[in-house]
């Protein structure tokens, strides 16, 4: 009996893993929007997540957009359809791409067992949360070296999926975005034992 309890405590389901990944993306994206000054700082409020105070947007339209993208993403994550999510920052007037944050996903097959028809990983939640916390903190500190976004900017989220993925009506296909003369920086990565997330920021060098 105790052995069973032990096992369930250390287990993470596919659903839980997808939730953690989308939570990370939500707070990571909010943090980027605040730290890079894309929206006015007055429209953000501090919330406690993963043991950090993270500034989350209070703008309804932004939240609605993020929620609709991330809920769709969670479905695709469960079906292992997603390769990566890109946050693209473009200059509003010239449409030039200034910065791209890539959240690359890998699906891990090691240490994964199937229990009651569900995929289950074996990593402890506190360890995962600590790893996520470290990446989120790194995102905050990037402000000290990334170039200033001088002109008004807007952002968009692009999801790179596998070709056999079902696409709902409100989604469009677009082309890849490049930054001319870019520099790339790999941040820390984290793994839920089911999903592995690599965060990379590319920015324009002068």
């Amino acid at each position: 009996m105790t052995a069973v309890q032990q096992q369930t405590r250390n287990a993470i389901t596919l659903k839980g893993s997808a939730k953690l990944v989308t939570d990370y993306l939500n707070y990571g994206i909010n943090s980027i929007l605040f730290q890079r000054g894309i929206y006015p700082p007055e429209s953000f409020k501090a919330e406690e997540h993963f043991g950090l105070s993270i500034l989350v947007s209070t703008d309804e339209k932004i939240n609605e957009f993020l929620q609709s993208v991330l809920t769709q993403m969670k479905d695709w994550l469960m079906q292992e359809k997603i390769q990566k999510l890109s946050l693209v920052v473009t200059n509003t007037s010239t449409k030039e791409v200034l910065e791209r944050w890539d959240f690359r996903l890998e699906y891990e097959k090691e240490n994964v067992k199937e229990e009651n028809g569900e995929l289950v990983g074996n990593k402890e939640l506190t360890v995962i949360q600590k790893e996520i916390k470290d990446v989120l903190r790194q995102i905050c500190s990037t402000v000290s070296f990334l170039p200033l976004l001088d002109a008004p900017c807007e952002f968009d989220l692009h999801i790179y999926t596998k070709p056999d993925c079902e696409v709902p009506a409100e989604w469009n296909e677009t082309g890849p975005c490049f930054i001319a003369n870019s520099q790339e920086l790999q941040l820390r990565s984290f793994s839920t034992s089911l999903h592995k997330m690599n965060t990379v920021v590319s920015y324009k060098t002068e």
Partner: peptide, 9 residues
């Protein structure tokens, strides 16, 4: 396939 949500932020 690269997908983007129609309704932009």
């Amino acid at each position: 396939r690269i997908l983007a949500f129609q309704k932009k932020a």
